[in-house]
């Protein structure tokens, strides 16, 4: 009897440490965060948060009141994040897929090139992004040196880290960081394609582009479905890239949602409204993920 009990209990005992950690660092803070979003949690209550007065839906009302400054800037940041995400996910997938397809056949130096392509993924974010911010400096950076001094493409040296150009700079760095992951995943996906498939297609007279379009791309679809979702969540939540690239204050053109919430929380020390914005962000991500999973699984069902 005792032995049976311990056999049933054992898997739970093994899971216990993982469960406790997940509870402590993820689930409890999430619940606390939701509670906080209904409170008037300003700097006076940081050390004594249970005494903060309730705000009802006040924080949410403020966040989505798009006629007032707070709501307006949140909405702006949301749109910036959306366009950033679409660009980064799209370009990362495109570059990753092209590189994966073109490196399918072995050639001299392929291993070395592959290792080089993985470098952006391996480098610590802050070291890599700080290098980019040096390259984007107006007077001493590499980008203006090439564009202005060598190619004479611009009449004046543009600013890259303030103003409207900061959006392109941010997208460039983010794509640089995330395409290797797409490349990695898609390369793995390509390995499942049997070579006979290509041989048969070539025998039937299919050219290289037809082979890619008819064989390679369709067989990448299942991998891409997961990959796009992962890239979407990463890009939408990206904090590190803008934070290191721009320092404490991101320019409005590159005001991603995570950094927006961070700044409005720690500048005003109003954690209540920051939490409300975080909860709204989570709701949006859950909704987007659900819609995406629903759409892709239905599509998959229709294909079968």
């Amino acid at each position: 009897m005792r032995q049976r009990l311990s056999r049933i209990g054992l898997p739970y005992l093994l899971l216990l440490p993982a469960l406790v950690m997940e509870l402590l660092i993820h689930l409890v803070p999430m619940v606390v965060g939701i509670v906080m979003s209904f409170k008037q949690l300003t700097q006076f209550f940081i050390r004594n948060w249970s005494e903060a007065p309730w705000a009802g839906l006040g924080n949410y009302r403020m966040a989505v009141d798009f006629n007032a400054p707070v709501g307006q800037s949140l909405l702006h940041s949301f749109w910036v994040t959306c366009s950033f995400t679409v660009l980064v996910v799209g370009l990362s997938w495109l570059i990753g897929a092209s590189a994966a397809i073109m490196m399918q056949d072995s050639f001299r130096g392929r291993g070395l090139l592959r290792a080089a392509f993985l470098l952006p993924y391996a480098l610590p974010v802050y070291a890599a992004v700080i290098t980019w911010s040096f390259m984007f400096q107006r007077d001493t950076g590499l980008v203006n040196h090439i564009l202005h001094d060598q190619l004479h493409l611009t009449s004046d040296k543009p600013f890259w880290l303030i103003g409207d150009n900061s959006f392109s700079a941010l997208v460039t760095v983010a794509v640089w960081r995330s395409w290797p992951f797409a490349f990695l995943t898609l390369t793995a996906g390509l390995q499942n394609i049997p070579r006979e498939l290509y041989e048969a297609a070539a025998m039937d007279g299919a050219g290289i582009w037809q082979q890619i379009r008819r064989i390679t791309l369709p067989s990448l679809r299942p991998v891409s479905q997961v990959l796009v979702l992962v890239l979407f969540l990463w890009s939408f939540n990206d904090f590190n890239t803008p934070y290191v690239l721009f320092g404490k204050s991101a320019p409005p053109a590159a005001d991603l949602i995570s950094i927006h919430i961070y700044q409005s929380s720690f500048v005003t020390w109003n954690f209540g409204s920051g939490s409300a914005m975080s909860v709204l962000l989570l709701l949006f991500l859950m909704l987007a993920t659900a819609v995406y999973l629903f759409a892709t699984s239905r599509r998959r069902g229709a294909d079968d």
């Binding site: 962000l281 989570l282 991500l285």
Partner: peptide, 10 residues
């Protein structure tokens, strides 16, 4: 999948 910012404040 949860945004880090969601845990940060709590």
């Amino acid at each position: 999948m949860f945004p880090g910012i969601l845990f940060l404040l709590p």
